[in-house]
Design a binder for these strands. Structure first.
Length: 678
DNA sequence: GTAGGGTTAG
């Protein structure tokens, strides 16, 4: 974030500097009046110039006998260097300054803090006393923030003691710092006590309390503090919304509505409040609402910043809204928001999720700095496309580049191995994670391993793995096992897994269907019927199949058997024509519903047409010949559709990319990239 | 000057 802020500032500062230098070149004002020069240089430094401008300015100051060692300029230079990440230079100026005061120490501590050098910040704080300087009402809030950022309760408690001793306990900023520190350190009772004992509180004090609860997963308490604020007739602001964000991630629709109302009632909607609103939708799997909110924001002529774009990009990825995604990419280039690590990571992932692996790769290759997230995004992108070897190669390169893979990186690489059938490699990475990187495997890693073993046909080994794992197996673990049992027709283990799943998630229709598939393959029709009636008797609701397709900046959604689309009649007619041509090529529609279901769409839905077929025909009718068609589905592609889409790609001479819940299928010339195994 | 908004898996 810092980089972004500084970046936009750099340009303004550079312009000012050019004007400054050209005025310096004018002979009538050389030698420059020292007071005027101090003022001018100070103004440029306050705008955080880029490193080159800063160095030029610094050398000008050093050679000027009046300005060299000027304390005010020294402080500004320190701040400007810190904003460029050059804390070494900040420290140098600090050490060399002959006339230091308490502000020098405060700026030095803040510089370290902003560059996440927390131990260095603490050290400066400690040596202040030895130099005869007492920390003041500026020092303590800053040091408390260092405690918050490093979750250092031990120092935090010492600072609290010192604050009370020197009589700063009643200071508003110090109090706010204490509330935040205790909140970050999981001491919510203490945080609340400090808040209650503050003689004067402002909206920041309350927001800090909201943030404390929200960060500690105390969602209801966080919302309760908001209601308390409302009852005190305090104006909730963008900061309140931002503080609440962790509390309304994967939350109830009631909570989302509460935030929405908070936003709507906000008198001055700042950029941050728009950004938070978008993030709330994204974090609650409501990508369409997020996109709508973004378009609304544009219509209100609010200029998005890097945070806005980084927040909305995952929604584009979710919806495969490639056109919008590309438009956003152009926007960030036009607004010179790049380079920005988070934005680049988000762009890469958007392209990958839209099935544009090459565009994702292009972003990756163009990046100056990459972190574990950058590599992980690309590794999982290759994994989802079934290119396990490329994923493994990237993983090795990431290690070679000196980065330590984290827990998520291992999920990605093991999952990539699983999709590509790289059994030994997957096992190797699981072991590497534990033995070399000392990462304690989480439930996600175990479910990946079960998937890896299961897909490779080692169903019994997978079951043993489940029995021996130190964590309680969850839905995903049993689900991976059941899927493997369907593929390899393992009735015994399948029944065990299904039984567990029916207990864990009795309302999930998909697992009943999977089990009925296993029975059907074994021709146990009586059991198939039993499962069918179980679904009916238990009143289990099925997730309807939905496919999205984007056309000129608008995402069109189709349900299975959908007839609500304005072009519906045309779509069905065209589909009939296509089916005729497909039959000439040997297509036989699969009518056996039990085998037909991969997941949740039952017999009735099969009589209707699956959503991906409708979306594809719609795209065929409405897009130019030869342009690729990209579909995103909320369930897995069934066997019948898979066969049909292969043929459609051949007949219509179109590349068709279908993203289902598990992976990408790239259809072209009658074949699919998954090699018919998914 | 104190709170608070972004990216990666399944």
């Amino acid at each position: 974030m810092r980089a972004v802020v500084c970046h936009s500032r750099h340009f303004k500062a550079r312009d000012k500097l050019e004007a400054l230098f050209s005025s310096l070149r004018r002979p009538e004002i050389v030698p420059l009046n020292p007071v005027l020069a101090e003022d001018l240089f100070g103004k440029v430094l306050d705008e955080y110039p880029d490193i080159k401008t800063l160095q030029k300015l610094h050398s000008k100051i050093v050679v000027d006998q009046h300005l060299h060692f000027n304390p005010s300029l020294g402080i500004k230079l320190m701040r400007a260097y810190a904003a460029c990440g050059q804390t070494g230079m900040t420290r140098h100026i600090f050490d060399e300054s002959p006339e230091r005061n308490v502000i020098f120490f405060n700026v030095m501590i803040r510089s370290y803090m902003n560059n996440r050098l927390y131990q260095e910040a603490f050290l400066v704080f400690k040596v202040m006393f030895g130099h005869g300087f007492l920390p003041d009402n500026y020092t303590y809030p800053c040091v408390l923030k260092v405690c918050s950022a490093s979750h250092d309760l031990r120092v935090g408690l010492q600072v609290h003691g010192a604050v009370v001793k020197v009589g700063l306990g009643l200071n508003l900023f110090v109090g706010n710092g204490l509330v935040a520190m205790y909140g970050k350190c999981y001491c919510l009772v203490e945080a609340r006590r400090v808040l209650d004992e503050m003689p004067r509180r402002d909206v920041v004090s309350w927001n800090s309390m909201v943030a404390g609860y929200a960060q500690n997963a105390r969602f209801d308490d966080a919302l309760e503090v908001c209601r308390e604020m409302e009852s005190l007739r305090l104006k909730l602001d963008a900061g309140t919304m931002a503080s609440l964000l962790p509390a309304v991630t994967n939350t109830s629709s009631k909570n989302v509505t509460y935030i929405k109302e908070m936003f709507e009632n906000m008198f001055n909607k700042s950029l941050v409040s728009w950004n938070v609103m978008i993030a709330v939708y994204v974090n609650n799997s409501m990508p369409s609402e997020a996109v709508d909110q973004f378009l609304h924001m544009e219509a209100c002529e609010i200029e998005p910043d890097a945070v806005t774009i980084a927040s909305i990009l995952p929604a584009c990825g979710d919806l495969s809204a490639l056109l919008l995604g590309r438009r956003l990419h152009q926007y960030v280039e036009r607004k010179k928001l790049l380079p920005n690590l988070l934005l680049e990571n988000a762009l890469m992932d958007m392209y990958a999720k839209c099935g544009c692996l090459q565009d994702a790769r292009k972003v990756f290759d163009s990046m100056e700095f990459r972190d574990v997230v950058s590599w992980t995004s690309l590794i999982s992108a290759y994994g989802r496309s079934g290119q396990g070897r490329d994923a493994v190669e990237l993983f090795e390169k990431m290690q070679d580049s000196g980065l330590s893979p984290d827990s998520v990186a291992f999920v990605s690489v093991i999952s990539a191995c699983s999709h590509a059938g790289l059994l030994e490699e997957g096992k190797h990475y699981f072991k590497l994670m534990i033995d070399e990187y000392k990462i304690v495997p989480r439930i996600e890693h175990f479910s990946c391993m079960v998937d890896l073993l299961g897909r490779a046909g080692r169903v019994d080994e997978a079951y043993s793995f489940v029995k021996e794992m130190p964590l309680e197996p969850n839905e995903r673990v049993w689900g991976a096992l059941l899927s493997a049992c369907r593929v390899y027709s393992n009735m015994d283990v399948g029944l065990i897994a299904a039984d567990k799943l029916f207990q864990l998630v009795p309302e999930q229709a998909g697992y009943y269907v999977l089990l009925s598939n296993i029975y059907a393959k074994a021709e146990r029709w009586q059991d198939v019927m039993t499962i069918r009636s179980m679904i009916k008797n238990r009143g289990i609701k099925k997730t309807p199949g939905i496919s999205n397709v984007e056309l000129s900046d608008k995402v069109h959604t189709f349900l299975a058997g959908d007839r609500s689309h304005p072009q519906s009649k045309k779509i069905y007619e065209e589909l009939d024509v296509l089916v005729g041509k497909m039959k000439e090529l040997g297509y036989v529609p699969e009518t056996d519903s039990a085998l037909h279901d991969v997941e949740e769409e039952d017999k009735e839905c099969h009589l209707a047409v699956h959503s991906e077929k409708l979306a594809i025909v719609f795209a065929l009718l409405n897009s130019k010949p030869c342009t690729p068609i990209r579909i995103t589905k909320n369930l897995r592609v069934c066997g019948d559709c898979h066969t049909a889409v292969k043929l459609i790609s051949q007949i219509a001479e179109r590349e068709i990319v279908v993203r289902d819940t598990h992976r990408f299928h790239h259809f072209a010339n009658g074949i699919c990239s998954c090699g018919d195994y998914w």
